Every structure is written in C-alpha cells, then in structure tokens.
Amino acid sequence: MTPTTDPLYPLILYYDSRCPLCTAEMQNLMRRDRAGQLRFADIWAPDFAGPPGSATFDDLLALIHARGANGQVLRGVEVFRRAYEAVGLGWVTAFTRWPVLGPLADRAYPVLARNRYRLPRWLIAPLFERASQRAARQRCDANGGCDLP
C-alpha cells in the first residue's frame, strides 16, 4: 500500500526532544513530509498524551513509538521504516527489510536508543542536520517563500 491509501497514515511519531539525534531526525522528517502523512508528538511537551493504553513514559524513552490512524502501535525500527516510506525515502530503510539485516537492525536499534545521548553532535550533524537543511531548501520557492511545518 502507498502511504496515501494505507490505513496506518497519518502516523503519529512519539519522540524525545531532549535527544539531539532524535530531534535532528524528526526535523528532517518534518521538512520532508510534503504529503502530511506524519504527525509529531514530543514526549517532553507539557500537554503530551501518549498512545492510549499501550506504552508507559519509560517505554517511550527506551524506544521510539508511533501510532497509526488505525490505532496500531509500532515500536523501534518499524517506526523508521514507515516514516521514511511516508516521505518518499523508503530506500533509506529498505535494507532493514532484508532477511539477515532486518533482524540485525531490530536487535541493534535498542542499543543505539539506550546510548543516543552519548553520540557527539559532530556525528549527528552530517547524518541529519545537513539533510534536513537540504529538504528545507527544496520546500522554498525562488522568492524565498517556504512551505515548512
């Protein structure tokens, strides 16, 4: 199914805004979400309400979660697969669907998530911030008007 017809979309991504890696990745996705298939919920926001009955705050801190329009709750790498597909970048996570690499990615992600605050900013910038800036420029017209969330 394509994101426009998939009952999972729009997909709400629950992310940790206190994590530089998480914030950079979400900003990149926000800027690329031209079709409006994604929603973003900062788990540290004062008015935050998580996915109903499915995850505690500690669960949300441990792994990224998302909730589909159909109520389905996703966790871990599957969230990234679906989010990147929604913005037309499914190729970025395509390898995580391969028979050997997919299960490996699913097992490696919790380790990355646990250690995300230890990642230096000089590593995060090349991964997401520059890509996010490119996405922002693509959404701006010649007169300087931008279509950004």
Score class of each variant (00 low, 15 high):
53 G>Y: 06
4 T>R: 09
78 E>V: 13
28 N>K: 04
30 M>C: 12
50 G>I: 04
28 N>Y: 14
21 L>T: 08
17 S>G: 15
124 I>P: 06
118 R>M: 08
136 A>I: 06
138 Q>P: 04
43 I>G: 01
6 D>W: 15
139 R>E: 08
61 L>T: 10
100 V>W: 12
75 R>D: 00
106 D>N: 05
4 T>I: 09
97 R>A: 15
102 G>F: 07
91 W>P: 06
138 Q>W: 03
11 L>V: 11
72 Q>C: 03
104 L>S: 04
106 D>L: 00
111 V>I: 02
71 G>S: 11
4 T>P: 01
75 R>M: 00
13 L>M: 13
21 L>E: 06
45 A>T: 04
3 P>I: 07
9 Y>A: 07
118 R>I: 01
41 A>T: 01
103 P>T: 02
49 A>S: 13
127 L>M: 06
149 P>T: 08
59 D>I: 00
20 P>L: 08
42 D>W: 13
127 L>T: 14
147 D>P: 02
3 P>D: 03
141 D>I: 10
85 E>R: 07
126 P>C: 12
90 G>F: 04
12 I>M: 13
38 L>H: 10
78 E>I: 12
26 M>Y: 07
46 P>M: 07
8 L>S: 09
130 R>C: 04
45 A>E: 05
106 D>C: 02
107 R>M: 04
136 A>F: 02
63 L>P: 06
96 T>Q: 00
65 H>A: 08
44 W>N: 15
79 V>M: 07
148 L>T: 12
64 I>D: 07
51 P>Y: 07
35 A>Y: 03
127 L>S: 05
32 R>T: 07
27 Q>M: 03
56 T>H: 11
27 Q>A: 03
26 M>N: 04
60 L>C: 04
71 G>Y: 14
84 Y>L: 14
100 V>L: 15
7 P>H: 12
58 D>H: 08
30 M>A: 13
63 L>A: 12
71 G>I: 09
120 P>K: 12
11 L>A: 09
90 G>A: 13
30 M>G: 09
53 G>F: 08
15 Y>V: 11
130 R>V: 11
67 R>Q: 15
42 D>S: 09
107 R>N: 06
110 P>K: 09
22 C>P: 02
72 Q>W: 03
20 P>R: 10
22 C>A: 11
71 G>C: 14
23 T>D: 10
103 P>A: 07
25 E>W: 00
114 R>A: 15
95 F>W: 15
58 D>F: 01
21 L>H: 08
108 A>H: 04
58 D>K: 02
33 D>R: 00
54 S>A: 15
67 R>T: 15
96 T>H: 00
130 R>E: 09
145 G>N: 10
63 L>V: 06
103 P>D: 00
38 L>S: 05
119 L>K: 04
102 G>K: 06
8 L>I: 13
4 T>N: 13
73 V>T: 15
24 A>N: 04
1 M>A: 09
32 R>G: 03
118 R>P: 04
63 L>K: 11
104 L>H: 05
19 C>D: 13
102 G>A: 09
87 V>Y: 02
146 C>Q: 08
22 C>S: 05
11 L>F: 12
73 V>E: 04
140 C>Y: 05
134 R>V: 11
